[in-house]
Amino acid sequence: MLEARLPSAVTLKKIIDAVKELVQDANFDCNDSGIALQAMDSSHVALVALLMRAEGFDPYRCDRNIALGINFATLAKVMKCAGNDDNLTIKAGEDADVLSLMFESTNSDRISEFDIKLMDVDADHLGIPETDYSATIKMPSAEFQRICRDLSVMSETVTIEAVKDAVKFIASGDTGSGSITVKPNQAVDKKDMEVTVTLQEPVKLAFSLKYLNHFAKASTLAGSVTLSLSDDVPLMI
């Protein structure tokens, strides 16, 4: 059986919000090291890989490997019923056909319990090849989210051009064009605000902003984001 408790439900709320636009149904693969998710979107344009390590839960117990087939639209609706600061406990029994979620307010005067029916999700486990990327850009995740949102007013596509001392995001459409250039900064107080560009060779690649905007929804999970680019290789965010 699985039993895992998170001190704050907001962590799973943010994760589900970041994933639900891309993934309809997928397995939570649970084992003693944690809960993993790997899924492609329906058009096989994006792969989502997520690992919630056992150390992030207290307590965490998983007796044997189990795959819990989750409908993310349903889970997202249920997670909206949790307060951000609620304790969250998820449970699934042996051969379970439901995932049980319990939300407990901080002073324990409100306890909500929901069961979500599990599904059979037929999914391949994919290996992600080790890649030496031509360019790796680290920047504040909120800045990346804003760039994707701002450039969406001009085009459905953004070209990301990484050169030695800058990265340029360019959008060009029927009504005009726009670009945002981000330069590395070293002397910043907060690590999350740091911008670095690590370059093996300059690259210039185009991506659908629809997908980048989906990925940017994960910006609430971490202060910084890393973009890794190479020709003929999927962008890794």
């Binding site: 492609m40 058009s43 344009v45 792969l47 992600i128 090849p129 596509t157 999927p234």
Partner: peptide
């Protein structure tokens, strides 16, 4: 590109 290409071929099935 208006549409992104599939990336499925990049990954190996385990």
């Amino acid at each position: 590109p208006a549409g992104q290409r599939s990336i499925a071929a990049f990954f190996t099935k385990k």
